[in-house]
Amino acid sequence: MPLPELHTARLHLRNWQPADLPRFAVLNDDAQVMQYFPGRFDREQSDALAARIQRHIEQNGFGVWVLERHEQPGLIGILGLQQVQFDSAFTPAVEIAWRLLPAFWHQGLATEAAQAALRFAFEQLALPQVLAFTVPANLPSQALMQRLGMQRDPAEDFLHPLLPKNHPLRPHLLYRLEQARWLRLQQAAGRQ
C-alpha cells in the first residue's frame, strides 16, 4: 500500500521511486548528515535501508516519505513515521525521524515537513503519541523536536540497545509529543 502523499507550502512528501536511490545513497554517505549515527552507509547499505523503509510502509500503512521541493523535483531528504525497531521501556511506539542534505538545512524545511507528518500521525492514524530520540550532542535535532512541541523527561533518557556498551553514541535523549498536547498547540496557533 503506498503512502498518502502530503503537500506543504514548499514541499511534497511523496512515495519512493527507483530514481531516488542514488540521491538517497549520497544522503547516507554524507559526513555531516551521518555525524550522529554510528557510521556512513555505502550504496549497498543505503539500498538495503530503502528496502526496509518500503517493507515498513507495506506492513504498516505509514512510514518514511521522500522530501522534494515543489519547484525542483528530486530527493532532498527523508522524513516520516516508523515503528521503533528495538525493545525498550517505551516500546512499542512510533517515532518521527528525518535526514536532509546539508544544502537544505536552516531553511525551516524539516520543521515544515515534520508538522505535516505529525498532523497525519494524529489526525489520520489517530496515534496517541509520537516519539523522537537523538544523542545529546545533536543540538539541531533537539531544537527541531522542541519547535514541534515535543517534550523531554530526563528520567526517560536511555542507552540505545542496538549499539555496543561503550559506544560514544549509545546515550540517547527521548522526546515525546502526545496527541492531546499537539491538539492544544494547534488550537493556540489557530491551526484547528
Rank of each mutant, 00 (worst) to 15 (best):
R69C: 13
P18M: 02
L67S: 07
S46T: 08
L79G: 00
Q72F: 03
Q32W: 04
N15P: 04
H12R: 15
A31R: 10
E44P: 00
G63I: 00
R69L: 14
F41E: 10
W65C: 06
A48W: 01
Q35K: 15
E44N: 00
E58C: 09
G80A: 07
H56D: 12
F41N: 11
A51D: 14
A48N: 10
S46A: 15
F62G: 09
R23V: 05
F24W: 06
I78D: 00
D47M: 02
R55M: 12
W16C: 04
R43C: 07
V66D: 05
L11N: 06
A50H: 06
A48H: 04
I76K: 03
G80R: 09
R40D: 08
G61F: 06
V26N: 04
I57N: 08
A51P: 07
H12C: 13
L49V: 13
N15S: 09
A51C: 08
A31H: 12
G39W: 02
A19H: 03
A50E: 09
Q59M: 11
W65A: 06
N28S: 04
L75R: 00
L27M: 10
A19G: 03
L81E: 05
V33N: 12
F37L: 15
L79F: 02
L21C: 08
L49M: 14
Q17A: 13
H56R: 11
Q59N: 15
E44Y: 00
W65L: 03
M34Q: 14
A50K: 01
F62R: 04
S46E: 06
G39R: 13
